[in-house]
Design a protein around this nucleic acid. Sequence first.
DNA 1: GATGAATGAGGGTTCATTCAT
DNA 2: AATGAATGAACCCTCATTCAT
Lengths: 215, 215, 215, 215
Amino acid sequence: MITVRSEKIPNGKSERTFVDIARRAQLVECAIDAIAELGLPKASLAEVAKRAGVTKTTIFYHFTSREELIHEVFASVLRQGAEFMAERTTSGQSAAAELQTYIEANVAYIDTHRKQVRVLTAIAMNFTDADGRTRLPHDASVYGTSLAPLQAILERGQRAGEFRDFSTRTMAMTVRAAIDVIGPQLSVIPDLDLDAYARDLVSLFRHATTQEARP
Amino acid sequence: MITVRSEKIPNGKSERTFVDIARRAQLVECAIDAIAELGLPKASLAEVAKRAGVTKTTIFYHFTSREELIHEVFASVLRQGAEFMAERTTSGQSAAAELQTYIEANVAYIDTHRKQVRVLTAIAMNFTDADGRTRLPHDASVYGTSLAPLQAILERGQRAGEFRDFSTRTMAMTVRAAIDVIGPQLSVIPDLDLDAYARDLVSLFRHATTQEARP
Amino acid sequence: MITVRSEKIPNGKSERTFVDIARRAQLVECAIDAIAELGLPKASLAEVAKRAGVTKTTIFYHFTSREELIHEVFASVLRQGAEFMAERTTSGQSAAAELQTYIEANVAYIDTHRKQVRVLTAIAMNFTDADGRTRLPHDASVYGTSLAPLQAILERGQRAGEFRDFSTRTMAMTVRAAIDVIGPQLSVIPDLDLDAYARDLVSLFRHATTQEARP
Amino acid sequence: MITVRSEKIPNGKSERTFVDIARRAQLVECAIDAIAELGLPKASLAEVAKRAGVTKTTIFYHFTSREELIHEVFASVLRQGAEFMAERTTSGQSAAAELQTYIEANVAYIDTHRKQVRVLTAIAMNFTDADGRTRLPHDASVYGTSLAPLQAILERGQRAGEFRDFSTRTMAMTVRAAIDVIGPQLSVIPDLDLDAYARDLVSLFRHATTQEARP
DNA sequence: GATGAATGAGGGTTCATTCAT
DNA sequence: AATGAATGAACCCTCATTCAT
């Protein structure tokens, strides 16, 4: 639906130039700032252009439309997020340990990427139509991490006998919700201690997932 | 900043007439529909007016600005939500039972007031500025029920020895998050069984709050 | 396809006001001037608005889009043209006399309505797509007078024995072409004597239509 | 006003290279297609460039402006048209025969060069200003054949006694008009039989030009 | 109590054009 | 001989808002 570039490409090799790539990146970065600060609707092309020290038209040289720019913003943030996560995801642990890692890594991400989180939710919200269906090409679940990997951890824990019996979907949703709520809550409680919060969550979900009766 | 227009009420009478009140209510209702269906940014005054079968200017007779209308929408939905909650909140129970009631009532509200939930989040999102601080007069926490009452339940449970030791704030945030996430998740999983979800949550938080070791 | 008015009309009676009608007429008139002078593509809304001493937005209050304005321009000119013709069309004459009247009336119209003729052709041209098919709601043939009435005259003349045998369609096309060519030719020959031209045409087509051999 | 860029030709050589000439021709050809399909206003440089598999800027290497390109398009089509005509113009005939040839050749041209005809009229229309005066360097009369040669035939016929007495200018205009109208009419009547039309015209103008009374 | 008419600011987008490479 | 990158002007159109009635 969104074709990447309508002009140029006279010869077959439509590789992007260094400068082009740099500009695109810069524009995406400025768009991220604008969206984070003003919200998606007020992040006009004029605003983005101003921040980039560039004319509105220049944006159209690098992106076919505002929508393409925003899609790129979304994809870009998602990409960065995935990298961040990949780095701190360890394997070969117990499910419980893995769940702990998951929670800690995610909270850490939010702590250090508040701008990105704002952007993600802003875009996800505004690209949803009447019946709630998303018009975004990517999984709208924040940080690109849908519930699937989390649910996988939980299921493995259940199979291994580490975890008690519960709905893995509900548990996964709750874990993610407890993480994602940080963004909005930071507005209300600016001095929220995220390290403590992470510790609390780990403990909370250890109790929630494990067998209660122990000899 | 937002004056509730006392000066504009005509011919000296300081009270609003019946018609006036009715029209305001109708306009608010139409605005709710528009926002729920189209999102806040696309819910223009033209759109609201059309739905109300009224001219754009008429809105300005009843509200001083678009912003006031939206504030009223927000307050109105909050008011309704509070009523709903008040009706199904019982007292004189154990903390555990009260927590269960809280969860069930809240999920039920979301289940039966999806439109309102959409409106609330839509407004909350778009009325947040750069540093996340809300520009809304009311507590943005959905349904007007901030964390306070929930936290009160949890503390009572701890004092009564029903609940184990944990951060009541973190627990309260997680409970609310697990509830509030339903709205967004309904977009992704439209056939989500909310009764089951409520049951799962009750169980989940019973495990999370109570002592694990039992004789 | 083009709905007339999207806003207002809260109550059923969507009658236009006096002022509204007047403004619409004025705007149409200014549009006619602009198109005649600058051609359709350069007759921007800004240009029309300037001529009307009004803001661009005002045009949108009276017309839903530029396209609607132009359609109205087209229709308006056509209407005026039809009136003009109706006034000088006599009946109960011989076919030959009627043909003469037709030619004279048409040439007179062009002579006195050069602006309108320019507008008509300008719009007709630019609202034609690749395969030549018109996207206009009305018959694009100038002055709304398609070939039909002309052809009717010619057929009557043939049936009455006044005219010789010929293709009425070709003859009709030629008559109209000889008339319509005046517009373009006026550019090349500004001092073209239209009275003389009309007389010449009448003579030309008398020879072309009537039997050549006479006793 | 429009200099044919002698100064911009690089490295001193005053002649255009082969490649240069070829590209110009190609660009003109693509412009012709674009104008024929989309009309002059929508035949943007971007569009032409795309069709030529070239960048917009390349066009500016070969032409100083869009206007120059279009002038060249116009001239080119005219040139081709003149060649076509030159080939089928015979001499040493009676004026009547020559008129017949003229009509037949012109109709044949239109029949086989509809694209070109579209382009010619499209350009002629849009390059005309307020008072109708053309801003084109060449005679706007289609196919470069102004009325002059046609009028010459008619005058010769009158001098030779073949033709009756009539205004040669009016007659010439009518002949051309009847020919030129084919283009527009083809839009309305796509299955117009041009051979028949040519035959009809020949007959029509034989009657119109010759003495009516014969022994 | 409500409307009709108008507006200024700003939205995204396309255009022909330029300049350095 | 051609392109990549950028631009200013203009495009149509929508917005919330005002003022007289």
